[in-house]
């Protein structure tokens, strides 16, 4: 800090604290609300401290079928994890191979392939969701993990990012590998993949969150609770027309839905930091 002025210090700290409160208060309320019983939540004041239930609500949503959902949250978390992992891993694998082909191989219509991939960047899932649904339905993919993952598995963004990274790899590295007797697969496995470790980690986080937060597509393709994802279920829990909303259950479920993305970020962050400190270029 080069400029230390008291007024500036106070102002910036005040702003920081305000932002922290704005961000943390809802989370805090969710945590405390999840530990109350339904009666105490309908007294009219939001509880700022833990209630009588302790972890009871969490235990309940994880082990017993929740309200209108017909299944427990463990199952929903599993579904979401499978979907998010499938999408993240699939996107990265496909993007690596596609970018590898585009950058390191000379084949007819190579440029056209790249531009076609690039153009799909402009088409979000929602734009093509009806035809995609029709195709998925015709293939019998409704209510299946394949149906959840497959239509979202290709990523132009990731392909583009890997392409840009591969273009910065010195061509001599490829030549040295060729002289050293490494074929295309070996070059990919031994040289290119280790070099793209940090890119892969970053993309994994982004793509996992993307997959986890999918709402519209799982909502369309799953009609039965055994393949429903947790994000979709959250909304469903809230829409109880004739009952009181069981806020303690909703809060517990919401908190559980937050845990896997947080875990992924915390775990992968160590790779980022490692990649930054140990930058291998």
């Amino acid at each position: 800090m080069r400029y230390r002025r008291r007024g500036l210090d106070i102002a910036s700290h005040a702003l920081l604290i305000l932002a922290l409160i704005a961000f943390c208060l809802p989370v805090w309320l969710a945590i405390t609300a999840a530990t109350h019983d339904q009666a105490s939540l309908y007294t009219g004041t939001a509880p700022l401290w833990f209630g009588s239930e302790g972890l009871g609500n969490f235990r309940a949503v994880l082990t017993e079928p929740v309200g209108r959902l017909g299944t427990d949250v463990t199952r929903l978390l599993l579904n979401s994890t499978v979907m998010a992992l499938g999408i993240a891993v699939g996107k990265i694998a496909i993007a690596i191979l596609a970018a590898y082909a585009i950058v390191f191989f000379r084949f007819p219509l190579r440029r056209l392939c790249f531009w076609l991939i690039f153009i799909t960047l402009m088409l979000p899932v929602e734009v093509r969701i009806m035809p995609t649904y029709k195709v998925a339905a015709d293939l019998g993919l409704l209510n299946s993990y394949v149906g959840l993952i497959l239509p979202l598995i290709a990523s132009a963004t990731a392909t583009f990012l890997f392409r840009q990274f591969y273009l910065t790899v010195p061509p001599e590295l490829l030549e040295a590998a060729r002289v050293d007797g490494a074929g295309p697969w070996r070059f990919l496995r031994d040289i290119l993949l280790p070099l793209s470790k940090t890119n892969i980690a970053a993309l994994f986080v982004i793509m996992f969150l993307y997959g986890w937060n999918q709402y519209l597509w799982p909502l369309l393709i799953t009609t039965e609770s055994d393949h429903m994802t947790i994000v979709v279920s959250l909304k469903r829990l809230l829409s109880s027309a004739d009952n009181l909303v069981p806020w303690q259950t909703v809060m517990a479920t919401a908190l559980l839905a937050m845990l896997p993305p947080v875990a992924v970020i915390v775990l992968m962050q160590r790779y980022f930091v490692k990649g930054l400190v140990d930058a291998e270029k």
Partner: peptide, 10 residues
């Protein structure tokens, strides 16, 4: 090679 082309991660 002129720029040595060593594998940076090895």
């Amino acid at each position: 090679f002129q720029n040595y082309a060593l594998y940076p991660h090895m």
